[in-house]
Design a protein around this nucleic acid. Structure first.
Lengths: 203, 203
DNA sequence: TAGTATGCTTTACGGCGTTAAGTAACAGTA
DNA sequence: TACTGTTACTTAACGCCGTAAAGCATACTA
């Protein structure tokens, strides 16, 4: 009587199909420009079926962002292991963060740039245990290592981590939002921003 | 026969009423959460009347943002005049920028954080001659003065200006988007971010 | 006073996210 | 095998949205 398990598997498969369709559309066209109806059309189900698998559009997005930010957290973990010098690890991590954002602009926008909705938004994506928070914790550890080795002039781990994050976020989000601005060379600008900030942190 | 002029004045007055109503609602509830119908209700006209004065919702928003960013540009101009030392002017300017963003979060969001739409967005708000661009030019001049006085290690005016902008934008937009994140003290964080970056720029 | 331009409204279109009600296929039991 | 309940999905509908087209008074002009 394995039919129960088969049905279970089929349900899971459809859930994944929804996720895949939504991801593809969101990444291509941006969250706000994709309707539930279009996602449904893509998987050839009725729009309301999606609601049997996800609470609402925001939940769908959240699931996708968690996937993506798990990747970022992993990437950062790898970098942390790879470089013994925490300052070098920090710099590499910053670059990886920005690159990640530019490579996944729609995920990035949705997670870090969308408006603070009463219900969703902030606490949803950066709540304890979320992948976004896990990525932040990697940064925090790296900063802690820098401070422990006496390489920074400021000793408040959280303040420094958040300042670094702000700086990285600034360059990432501006490049995403204003692609047509006459930037002084994107890569040059990323380099300058990150290296200047780290220089400013050093004792 | 001054009735023509009177009518002209009345039209202008209604245009301002629309702008005032829209500004108030946008600031209170955020652009996406305000409908044309609600703006119309507030001024006690039919929704379509608004379209006789503004091309669409985005144009309404654009007009409001121009107003607001003219204020920022002016503020920055004042600061530039007030401080002889360009480095000090720079630091004050950065603080003013962040403060301005936090005080007008909805304007800020709309001008610097909204998605790059095919039709509007980027080039609309930061096109040549716009108030946003004028504010950027103030920053640019200040950076130029710093370089001329040999106070910075990097000499590319645009690259430096944009890096500073990125940094300011980062802290501003993060604080707006994630008000519930456990920040290490907002003011402390703003201070640290700005002063660290400027420290990194100095020669 | 007739005709026209102006300024606003009514109506309507095609979309949206989401809920509630309905249905057809299947599973388990008698 | 016939009945019953459950599961998985669909259809229909609600109340929004931005916006275009057409209609309708009022005020001005000739």
């Amino acid at each position: 009587m394995g039919s129960k398990q088969r049905r279970e598997r089929e349900k899971e498969a459809l859930r994944q199909d929804i996720l895949d369709a939504a991801r593809e559309l969101f990444v291509e066209e941006g969250y706000e420009n994709v309707s539930m109806r279009r996602i449904a059309e893509k998987i050839e189900y009725s729009p309301t079926t999606i609601y049997l698998y996800f609470e609402d559009k925001a939940a769908l997005l959240f699931a996708i962002c968690e996937e993506t930010f798990a990747k970022l957290a992993k990437k950062l973990e790898n970098i942390m292991q790879q470089y013994a010098d925490p300052i070098e690890a920090l710099e590499r991590g910053c670059r990886a963060y920005v690159e990640f954002g530019l490579k996944n602009p729609n995920h990035y926008r949705v997670t870090f740039m969308l408006q603070p909705d009463r219900k969703f938004g902030a606490e949803h994506y950066l709540r304890e245990g979320s992948m976004g928070m896990r990525a932040y914790d990697r940064l925090r550890e790296c900063v802690y290592a820098c401070i422990r080795e006496g390489k920074l002039r400021e000793k408040d781990v959280d303040a420094v981590s958040q300042a670094i994050w702000a700086c990285n976020h600034g360059i990432t989000s501006l490049l995403i939002t204003k692609p047509d601005f006459p930037w002084a060379g994107k890569n040059r600008l990323i380099d300058l921003t990150i290296s200047t900030f780290i220089e400013g942190l050093r004792r």
